[in-house]
């Protein structure tokens, strides 16, 4: 059964509509790379998103046109959204670890977002990754996590919004 009280609590935030974005092929994807920095115990993430999708999202969340082209207000809105939708828990029931905003590079078609995920130990636990799920039913998100010579790619979609972070044993 659908928990409507929970649903409405979220939809209230997302009232603004009317942006026409139907495409012949509604493909929506993000790609990210996270490099583990052993020294600072942070995952340094570069996240690629289509500018159009991000602009549409910001308009829905803030009601402000072309917010993406603005400096700090856009940074704050994006940071806040990332904190809501990307949550890394080192223990399954634990609290999400902090996500620190570094900055963004915006071009006409694509935007790169940079942030750090502050862990207390080597990457592990569970990553929840719901970017754009409320906006695009077919959204696909991928992040490649690189720890020295090990790497793992995690793929997220609406039916699988969270996944354990695991690396295959290093072959020697």
């Amino acid at each position: 059964m659908i928990n409507f009280s929970r649903l409405l609590a979220f939809t209230v935030l997302l009232v603004v509509g009317g942006f026409q974005t139907a495409t012949a092929h509604p493909f929506h994807a993000t790609l990210a790379e996270g490099h583990w920095n052993e020294e600072s115990k942070t995952l340094e993430v570069s996240l690629w998103v289509p500018s159009h999708d991000l602009e549409k999202l910001l308009l829905k969340r803030t009601g402000i046109q072309n917010l993406l082209d603005q400096g700090k207000p856009a940074d704050q809105a994006i940071h806040s959204y990332l904190k809501e939708t990307i949550q890394w828990r080192e223990k399954p029931q634990g609290k999400p670890v902090p996500l620190k905003w570094i900055g963004k590079e915006v071009s006409v078609e694509e935007t790169w977002l940079y942030f750090e995920i502050q862990l207390t130990q080597e990457p592990g636990g569970v990553l929840e990754y719901r970017l754009f799920f409320e906006q695009e039913p077919e959204q696909q998100n991928s992040i490649e996590i690189i720890k020295g010579q090990q790497k793992t790619t995690l793929h997220f979609h609406r039916e699988q919004p969270s996944r354990p972070v695991r690396f295959a044993p290093l072959l020697r």
Partner: peptide
């Protein structure tokens, strides 16, 4: 099914 934890009115 969509995720009902975050679903817009338009969706």
């Amino acid at each position: 099914s969509p995720s009902f934890e975050s679903l817009s009115f338009s969706a």
